[in-house]
Every structure is written in C-alpha cells, then in structure tokens.
Amino acid sequence: MRESRLWFLFVLAGACMIVLLGAHLFVMHLETFMGYLGITIHEPLAYAEVMARAKSVSWLVIYMALLILALYHGLYGVRSVLLETINMKHHSTVTAVIVIVGLIAAVFGSYIVIQSYMMGGL
C-alpha cells in the first residue's frame, strides 16, 4: 500500500482518539473536575465499577475502538521512529515486526475486553 494511505489512517486514528481517549482520560483521572461539570464518578477503579462498565455494550465498543485505534496509531509512530534510526534499505522487516507486535497486543486486548464483558453479564 502507498505510504500516504497508511499515514492517512494514522492521522484519522489520531483524530478519533483526541475525542475518545480524551473522554477516557477525563473519566478515569479527573473525577473532581468532571464533578464540576455535573458528571459524578465514583471510584472508577473499584472492581464493581470496572466490571459494571465492562458489561455495558457501549463501553465494550469504546474499549475495542480505543484498543485498535491506539495500537495502530502508536505502532505506526514507533515504526516511523525505527525507520528513521535503523536505516534499512527496505522497510519490510521493521514493518513485519511492528505488525506482529500489534496483532499479539490486539488479540490479547480484545480477549480481555470480551472476556470481562461476558463475566460481567453472568
């Protein structure tokens, strides 16, 4: 694939993450601030809360989307850094390593998300 297509996907993933990851960060870390905005968040890291989020379909979709977008965006960025430092004549080896790492992380992450969704449903 032409590099421009890969790069455009990278930028699209980044743009989506500004919204999605922004929401995720604010919910998980800025409880007090969100309280002022009228959104009360209680102990976002308590086990009951975590599993309650896990069983909701909308959080499932958000988590899966975040996982895929973040892995693609992040690993494309790592590939850029590697290509600029390793100086190979062809990019295929670097790209292959990055794709393998990405696939492992994606499979592992989606297993966790789906497994906890099913557990929460019980």
Partner: peptide, 8 residues
C-alpha cells in the same frame, strides 16, 4: 510518497 520521502 514512500517511507523515505515526505512521510519522514
């Protein structure tokens, strides 16, 4: 439009 061109 390659890995050694504008995207670096």
């Amino acid at each position: 439009d390659t890995f050694e061109g504008i995207w670096r």
